[in-house]
């Protein structure tokens, strides 16, 4: 066990867990984008930076293990300034098209912009745009909204077992894509929609059909499914609008197959868990 002090609060946590989990244990909120508990930390979004006493640079909470006697600050002035800076960088190229975005209200970027965003933009240049690429009838890719967290790449590599998407180009021209057509060949391709924290990858069948906050979200499963996927139905006016994985605290419970996600919009196919 390690004794650490988080924002003045003494806690005892298991040795070797990260600062992020130590903070979560006592209900402290540290925002994350690229971190996903399913895979090792990538550390590229930089939003989870915290101050550790004795280390001159801010440290990313998702990657640094706690050590006995560590003193951590998660919400002092310096940390908040860094978060605001990261939010500003993420938003300079973002199209801010929340009113027509399917991710709206389920979007990590939107939530954090509310918490740490600036009221005024200082970016006067032209926003970066990417050409539209059609990735078939399942997944809509809106690269302009992408925040480059790379969770979809990790998911494809580590969980679908297909190294088919990756980063192209460098710097602020970086584009996530390339082989995404091949992802559609995977039986699990639709899960990149659920892992995307913003509206860059969305469900093409659900597009513009309903607002998320109008949906009744019901857990269900389909007896015919060979994988017994645990899904969540989004129902509006008695009709299934979309099928997603069950997401608790921003994390999928398990992946669901494309058959469940895209092909069964009949309520009779499902057994509801109410």
């Amino acid at each position: 066990m390690a004794k650490v002090v988080i924002d003045g609060q003494q806690v005892e946590v298991r040795e070797g867990i990260t600062i992020l989990w130590a903070a979560r244990q006592i209900g402290k909120y540290i925002p994350t984008f690229c971190y996903y508990p399913w895979f090792p930390p990538q550390g590229n979004c930089r939003i989870c930076q915290v101050e550790v006493k004795g280390i001159p640079k801010l440290q990313i909470a998702c990657n640094i293990p706690v050590r006995d006697g560590m003193e951590i600050f998660t919400e002092n002035e310096r940390v908040i300034r860094a978060r605001r800076a990261v939010m500003e960088f993420l938003l300079i190229h973002h199209p801010l098209d929340c009113p027509i975005c399917d991710q709206s209200s389920e979007c990590d970027l939107q939530d954090l912009a509310f918490r740490h965003g600036m009221a005024v933009g200082r970016y006067r240049e032209a926003k970066r745009t990417f050409p539209k690429v059609d990735y078939g009838d399942k997944i809509a890719r809106e690269m302009n909204r992408c925040i480059h967290c790379r969770r979809c790449i990790k998911l494809a590599e580590d969980y679908m077992g297909v190294e088919v998407i990756g980063a192209l180009e460098r710097g602020d021209k970086t584009e996530i894509g390339a082989y995404i057509d091949a992802i559609i060949d995977s039986e699990w391709s639709g899960n990149v929609i659920d892992i995307c924290p913003v509206g860059a990858l969305t469900d093409k069948k659900f597009r513009f059909s309903s607002r998320v906050w109008d949906l009744d979200q019901v857990n269900a499963y389909r007896p015919d499914c060979p994988h017994q996927c645990k899904v969540r139905l989004g129902i509006h006016r008695g009709k299934i609008q979309r099928v997603t994985a069950r997401i608790y605290n921003g994390v999928m419970e398990s992946m669901i197959c494309d058959d469940c996600r895209f092909n069964h919009y009949n309520l009779e196919d499902w057994v509801l868990e109410v």
Partner: peptide, 22 residues
């Protein structure tokens, strides 16, 4: 630097390009 940024982390990816443009 804007050209050579690898594009991995947010401040460098977005910031170097912005600096150059200004």
């Amino acid at each position: 630097y804007a050209h050579e940024s690898c594009g991995q982390c947010t401040p460098c990816r977005e910031g170097t390009g912005w600096l150059y443009k200004v």
